[in-house]
């Protein structure tokens, strides 16, 4: 039995559930939109892994029965609050309930897509860049600074420079232009992240266990996620990765202990590959719908087969 923990209004959770149903793989939905209301938990630790059960409105699941867990936590806007409590107390109760669920998921023996700990590096892009370099990736020249002179020197050296958030706060990638250069004195209030602009095609790689799905994105937008907002087009197609890049993708996912990640790469016109970041909670629906790459099917197989789906595989065999 598969446990899906997420919001029914979330498109990724919805697609995973639809794929599991299409595969005829039984699953239970722990609806994080209403949890902990109408859900139950009785879990014991007696020296080993957790034992016990979790339950929903019309189901109960022994932890031993679970072959795999897919979890996508929701922001506060997607959730019902615990009823009959003042807002502060309700938020505290919800935080306790969420932490209980996280503690359980962190310690289950079956595959969990994804455990929370490994994804924390995504909250610091420069920190993650150090991990990416260690995994074998080339990363763009990156400057994090609160010194306006350092930015001017970086800009002079690299010509075209972009800026984006260093933290996990979502931001639109923008070019550093005259308008921003004129406001650099504000940088003294706190650091920001700058990167040399890397020309070429974006390639998004999704890993599922040891499988890779690479998607080439063709767009003139600096940040293709927002291309249509800027009146620009986006085209996608399956891509092939050089062996060294594929190996680095699998290595970083393993090092972060994440079974499913979205990795943002760029291939330059000279054939060089750069890595920008690893997303531990990728919204892959957009890519699957555009290319037909069977990412949700791979997830369904992993969750259904459980630990049997995770033996070491050769990286060549894993390429899709």
């Amino acid at each position: 039995m598969i446990l899906v923990a997420g919001g029914i209004a979330d498109s990724v959770t919805e697609l995973v559930c639809a794929r599991l149903a299409a595969c005829d793989y039984a699953y239970r939905l722990l609806d994080l939109g209403s949890y902990p209301v109408n859900h139950g938990m009785a879990v014991r630790w007696k020296g080993g892994r957790p034992e016990g059960r979790v339950s929903g409105p019309e189901w109960e699941l022994d932890l031993d029965e679970i072959s795999g867990v897919f979890v996508r936590f929701l922001g506060p806007e997607g959730r019902l609050t615990v009823p009959d409590l003042p807002p502060v107390t309700a938020a505290a109760a919800q935080a306790e309930a969420d932490t209980a669920l996280i503690a359980l998921f962190e310690d289950l023996a079956c595959p969990v897509v994804n455990r929370l700990g490994g994804g924390m590096s995504n909250n610091s892009k420069p920190y993650q860049a150090l991990l990416l370099v260690r995994a074998g990736f080339q990363v763009p020249p990156t400057l994090v600074t609160s010194d306006p002179d350092a930015v001017r020197a970086f800009h002079a050296e690299h010509g075209e420079v972009i800026y984006k958030s260093a933290s996990g706060v979502r931001s639109i990638v923008r070019r550093l232009g005259p308008e921003q250069l004129a406001r650099l004195h504000l940088l003294r209030n706190g650091p920001a992240q700058f990167q040399a602009f890397i020309p070429g095609d974006n390639v998004r790689v999704h890993t599922v266990g040891d499988e890779l799905f690479a998607t080439r994105v063709k767009s003139d937008a600096v940040d293709y996620r927002y291309a249509r907002r800027d009146g620009l087009s986006v085209e996608m197609e399956p891509a092939e990765l050089p062996r060294a890049v594929a190996r680095a993708c699998l290595r970083i996912a393993r090092e972060l202990d994440l079974l499913h990640v979205g990795i943002d790469l760029k291939q330059t016109p000279d054939g060089e590959w750069f890595c920008f970041e690893v997303n531990p909670c990728p919204g892959f629906v957009f890519y699957e719908r555009q290319t037909g790459q069977p990412i949700s099917l791979a997830l369904a197989e992993l969750l259904y087969r459980g630990n049997a789906a995770l033996p070491e595989r050769t990286e060549e065999a894993a390429m899709n």
Binding site: P126, P141, T142, T145, S146, D147, R188, G190, P191
Partner: peptide, 14 residues
């Protein structure tokens, strides 16, 4: 440490 007048320079390149 990063509050003004603190200044950070962190550069990762080739």
């Amino acid at each position: 440490p990063l509050e003004p007048p603190g200044r950070l320079f962190w550069q990762l390149d080739s």
